[in-house]
């Protein structure tokens, strides 16, 4: 379904979920859970938003049944570790490329996706100060390097 305009803030989390549908269903599940919770806070009253959220909830319930034997879904403390490890893995890959001055679309996407996954960690509770810093740094780096490459500049 098309994402209602009111849900612009979660469209990239939903796209990340789609990208991980097969690669890592646990990541897909928690990205959608984050989108569900955030969407309900933004607008669960207007007909188009409510319709979208009901469909998203259907999808989450189906995923939960399909992944019923996966501890990362059954036990949120395991899910928390799974998402945090994945986010840090993406962050460290991008950071290593950055330090090696290898600037390319993949490393930009890794920085950006890791920042989205640090958002997703908030479904488990308050973010640690370290993860707040990681999220800020990753989002800034993704934006900065993307702009440099677009303008033909070399990122410093």
């Amino acid at each position: 379904m098309a994402v209602p305009a009111q849900f612009k803030a979660i469209q990239h989390h939903l796209r990340t979920a789609q990208e991980h549908e097969k690669r890592d269903p646990v990541v897909a599940y928690y990205c959608r859970l984050y989108a569900m919770q955030t969407g309900m806070k933004v607008d669960s009253k207007s007909p188009e938003c409510r319709k979208f959220l009901v469909k998203l909830m259907d999808q989450l319930e189906t995923m939960k049944k399909e992944l019923s034997d996966n501890d990362s879904i059954n036990q949120e403390v395991v899910g928390n570790a799974h998402i945090e490890n994945y986010a840090l893995k993406m962050f460290l890959y991008a950071d290593n490329e950055d330090r090696a001055q290898r600037f390319h679309k993949n490393m930009i996407k890794s920085f950006y996706t890791s920042s989205l996954l640090f958002d997703v960690l908030s479904v488990f509770g308050e973010l640690s100060e370290e993860n707040i810093q990681h999220r800020k740094y990753a989002r800034w780096k993704a934006t900065y390097i993307h702009t440099c490459l677009k303008n033909g500049d070399t990122p410093q």
């Binding site: 309900m40 409510r50 939960k64």
Partner: peptide, 27 residues
């Protein structure tokens, strides 16, 4: 009509909240 619409919307919103709580085994 307005009040009926509003109560339908809030009932559906409650239903969504309950489904979310059940999904997270928080019921």
């Amino acid at each position: 009509t307005g009040s009926v619409g509003t109560s339908v919307a809030s009932a559906e919103q409650d239903e969504l909240s309950q489904r979310l709580a059940r999904l997270r085994d928080q019921v």
